[in-house]
Design a protein around this nucleic acid. Sequence first.
DNA 1: CTGAAAGCGCTAACAG
DNA 2: CTGTTAGCGCTTTCAG
Lengths: 336, 336
Amino acid sequence: MNDSTIIDVARRAKVSVATVSRVLNSSSAVSPKTKTRVLKAIKEMNYTPNAMAKNLRSSKTMTLGVVVSDILVSYYAEIIKGIENTAIPFHYNILICDAQNRKEKELEYMSLVKNRTVDGMILVAPLLTNQELIHLAEEGYPIGIVGRFIDHPNIPCIYTDNVKASHEVVNHLIEEGHEKIAFLSGYADAVDSYERLEGYMKSLRDAGRPFIPELIENGNFNETGGYDAFRRLLAKNIGFTAVFAANDEMALGVYKACEELSIEIPSQMAVVGVDNNRISKYISPKLSTVDQPKFTMGALLAEKLIDQLNDNVYTDKMRFKVDSTLLIRGSSHRKK
Amino acid sequence: MNDSTIIDVARRAKVSVATVSRVLNSSSAVSPKTKTRVLKAIKEMNYTPNAMAKNLRSSKTMTLGVVVSDILVSYYAEIIKGIENTAIPFHYNILICDAQNRKEKELEYMSLVKNRTVDGMILVAPLLTNQELIHLAEEGYPIGIVGRFIDHPNIPCIYTDNVKASHEVVNHLIEEGHEKIAFLSGYADAVDSYERLEGYMKSLRDAGRPFIPELIENGNFNETGGYDAFRRLLAKNIGFTAVFAANDEMALGVYKACEELSIEIPSQMAVVGVDNNRISKYISPKLSTVDQPKFTMGALLAEKLIDQLNDNVYTDKMRFKVDSTLLIRGSSHRKK
DNA sequence: CTGAAAGCGCTAACAG
DNA sequence: CTGTTAGCGCTTTCAG
């Protein structure tokens, strides 16, 4: 166990603790001779500075919290990889928080920034409302958002245009000749759900198609939810030939139901998801989906938040919109 | 921002800091009246105790580090879920460390336990050798291992019998009528690789088959590595009809190569992996693989480590062997 | 270039 | 039941 403190090292090197601290942090010049002596003592005692003491004194923990809905979903994991990619070089650690798709959990985790366990918090596609988020930022807590636009000078955010992406998907489906297109939304209170639904409706409107409310079902953004929702849809006997799932997880549920019911994708049922989940290109047929530059989104946002943490730079550009791209794969391309 | 300290609260409630601390931690009785007053002050000032100060004082951070090789691999993500499942109720946070398949990284992360950023460290299928791990434990750092047996009284560990699992896989392949079975190992220095190879050889021996060294290739435990290794294997023209990949990621690489070369699975090439990665049951044909109770493994190990952290219980049972099960799916079941 | 000393915010004796 | 006080281990003025 490492029990030695800076005092022990100082004693052994016959210098003051201040000097030891100086060589530890290269904070100011120390004569080469004393420096060597201190270094030697440190090595001999196998001394490691106590991070808690350092944190307390410097009011920094050098760790960033990252709240995601579900660590098992590759979409989040890739964003985390991106965050990590910028955090590591800046010597920040990452505290991952798995909110298990629950808003209360998300809120609970915010105490980590309040009690100074982390220096800042990155929320990925949070369930918290903009208002709640803004409230936190105004209390002075450094937070950043991935996957949502939020109009506040203190909150860096990076997002894609959900309405546009969704609009593109539905247009594609219409072009493929589908008349009735179902929509699987996520939890009703998620902004993503709402925006994707908006794009869906816009497409219908543009194409002069009627909006049929029965064609909408909520699948809670997860596989079983998607499965159930799709079965409910089917039970209504509306005769739709395509489903747009607001994320890939729900699309996976659709695949499962189709397999059980021997509905062939895409000839009898076209399917499109969103997220470009890792699984989407392994399943058969490959799932058409909307890709976002996840890694980059995480990396860039982390950079901005770290900037803010260190220089209190709020003036800089803080809001980033990145493009998403529709990947048309086997699940939605009708055989001629 | 939360700038108020316990002193401010004390002042406002007209009590001493000790009393505030008492109500905060319910560490000893406080009269209902003062308690209410303190609580009121806390609420009014929107006070949150500073975790760093608390940590320093109590020499506890209530966080556990978890080192995994790659957070994107669902195998690790599920273990993390298990760890989380026991950590949360015990009020521990989890600091995820993504070692990016590199041993130096793993070692670097160990500084988190040395410098007291975390109270203990869980290593999942580490690249560090038993010796290195034991060294750390003997220096007094609380560590636990998931996915490997390690014979040391201070190191809780949970593992499956790799030799046996691998033995089972190869037996299955032999029963399916395969004569020449290739083996894709991971990095040469990983214990898992070694043990899985051992089981492979044992099966051949038991069945009176010759061991052909050319049938072994290293795929580094990842998809592209598996792809490359499989292509190298093919290039040797040995005429094997089955591959046992030491993990599912490499098996995915085999699938990719087979698709490119129009080799049909399983009729022309049987494939079996290990891990029961989430993707394995979505690909077509479904991948035969070896399942481990990942969630349970994480949960149980975390429990043991936390026990150790709190009570210094080293006497308790510390090493757990759990059963893995061979899941025979489409990729290795020869059509009659 | 080096040392002394004042805390960072909290907990836990100890005394009352 | 409540208050006083001594640190936890470190960084950082301020003097020298």
